[in-house]
């Protein structure tokens, strides 16, 4: 390397005089414009991003949205109309017990004689519902499954209560047919099964 302080290319007096010259700087507005552009460039991220890179996020979001809407629509269309407006299980069970207790109180025998033997058969109000009629007895609809799943204990209690009422009705029928011994025997077995059952005083008199 040649001597940089060679007098032919460097004169300290001229350098000193040059350093004494005014030192103009760019206007503040120019500084602001350049610095703002520099910040924008960083904020804008990588320049000339490829098409896939620019649209990857929006397209992914749109795809997820379309898929979600499709699945929800499909699921909704697969549901039966009654399931969409399915009543609460409690409202299904309540009418089953109410008519029978009325029958018991009024002593409407004609109706009780026609009462079915099983719980399923003892649910007359359900049979009157149009949706069930359309689906048939044997067909297990999602609504029924749901109903069974939600309130099995409630249903069991109702069935037992209905079964007690049914046995009382049978005992009454035996008495009315004059088969008192059989009625008493049936009552004994009933008592063992339902010791806390409040018996109608009139019936009790007839059994004594």
């Amino acid at each position: 390397m040649t001597n940089e302080t060679d007098k032919s290319v460097h004169d300290p007096r001229i350098s000193q005089t040059y350093q004494g010259l005014d030192k103009p700087t760019p206007p503040a507005g120019l500084d602001d414009r350049i610095l703002a552009a520099a910040r924008r460039e960083v904020g804008a991220g990588p320049r000339k991003a490829s098409f896939s890179r620019r649209w990857a996020v929006p397209i992914s979001a749109a795809a997820v949205l379309v898929l979600s809407v499709s699945l929800i629509t499909l699921q909704y269309s697969r549901q039966s109309p009654d399931e969409r407006t399915a009543p609460q299980p409690a409202t299904v069970i309540a009418p089953q017990s109410v008519p029978l207790s009325k029958e018991q109180q009024t002593g409407d025998r004609a109706k009780t004689e026609e009462a079915p033997q099983t719980y399923r058969e003892l649910a007359p109000d359900r049979a009157s519902q149009p949706a069930d009629n359309m689906l048939g007895e044997e067909e297990v609809t999602p609504a029924v499954q749901k109903e069974k799943r939600i309130a099995p204990v409630q249903r069991q209690d109702a069935a037992e209560r209905l079964s007690a009422n049914q046995q009382i009705e049978q005992i009454k029928q035996l008495l009315s047919e004059g088969k008192k011994k059989e009625a008493i025997a049936a009552f004994e077995s009933f008592r063992q099964r339902y010791p806390d059952y409040k018996l109608d005083p009139e019936l009790k008199k007839r059994l004594d």
Binding site: K23, P24, T25, D31, L35, A38, R39, V42
Partner: peptide
């Protein structure tokens, strides 16, 4: 650092050179 996104690094660089470059051009 500015390449990696540090805008303040550019600002430091700019303030370091803005005077000499401007006077050179002027």
């Amino acid at each position: 650092a500015y390449k990696k996104g540090d805008a303040t690094a550019f600002e430091t660089l700019y303030r370091r050179y803005k005077g000499p470059v401007y006077r050179y051009l002027l």
